[in-house]
């Protein structure tokens, strides 16, 4: 019985992780209209209600930069020197498309949830 409860809890946690992973890119892009470095971005996401593991976020920034969605530059005037990221023009377009897709998905899911709560 205890084992089944543990499995059920694990499944719920996996579901939540999957859910958050799906919107992670959108959340990151939304915070990068202003330039941020890795740690400050993580703080901004956490304060907004979306804490992200550091080991996940920092490589993601590199990948988004590699995909042309972000631009980065080193600021050596700070100690330690920091790499700042912000949206590229391509990132602006991608963000707008993802935001539209998110709103459409949210509307669909809200419809499903409303049907459930009306039963």
């Amino acid at each position: 019985m205890a084992n089944r409860d543990t499995n059920s809890k694990d499944s719920r946690e996996i579901g939540l992780v999957e859910l958050r992973r799906g919107v992670l890119v959108l959340a990151v892009l939304s915070r990068l209209r202003q330039r941020q470095y890795g740690y400050s971005l993580r703080q901004a996401l956490a304060e907004g209600g979306m804490p992200i593991e550091e080991g996940t976020l920092y490589p993601l920034l590199r990948r988004l930069e590699g995909q042309g969605l972000l631009l980065s530059e080193w600021d050596t005037g700070t100690s330690p020197p920091r790499r700042y990221y912000r949206l590229s023009p391509e990132g602006e377009r991608a963000f707008a498309e993802l935001a539209d897709a998110w709103r459409a998905q949210a509307e669909v899911i809200n419809g499903f949830l409303k049907e459930e709560s009306d039963r």
Partner: peptide, 10 residues
């Protein structure tokens, strides 16, 4: 270089 700076921040 970036990872070192981030870890120091963390």
């Amino acid at each position: 270089f970036e990872l070192r700076a981030l870890l120091q921040d963390e």
